[in-house]
Amino acid sequence: MKEISELNLPEDLRYTKDHEWAKVEGDTVKVGISDYAQDQLGDIVFVEMPEVGDTFEAEDEFGTLESVKAVSELYIPISGEIVAVNGDLEDSPELLNQDPYSGWIVEVKPDNIDEINELLDKDAYLELLKAE
């Protein structure tokens, strides 16, 4: 497993305590998992995703990630409606291991874009990881 100093944590993303990232793109937000999360899980073998049109409140469970011997829940960083899911993950869940930042999971149309400011920035997230 990677040391904290080896983790790739882009500056332009926001993070959650549950290790998801969120990125504003126009009026939607893309959501994925952090390098730390993919590293901890190991080989991801399956991603269970919501359907387009499903709506969630921030911190709701919106899907699961499976490795060979573990299941982890995914929590949505921001309230809103799912407008797209990354279909490539259906056949190639390993994309999340290869590059967790180009490998987004869902795209959300947020109810209130200001919620994004409540998420952690890179430094705050790094602090959280050091504490774990």
Binding site: V45, F46, S67, V68, K69, A70, V71
Partner: peptide
């Protein structure tokens, strides 16, 4: 596909 099973997913 053991993640469906009780020893991993327990009550789910």
């Amino acid at each position: 596909l053991s993640t469906r099973e009780q020893h991993i997913r327990r009550e789910k």
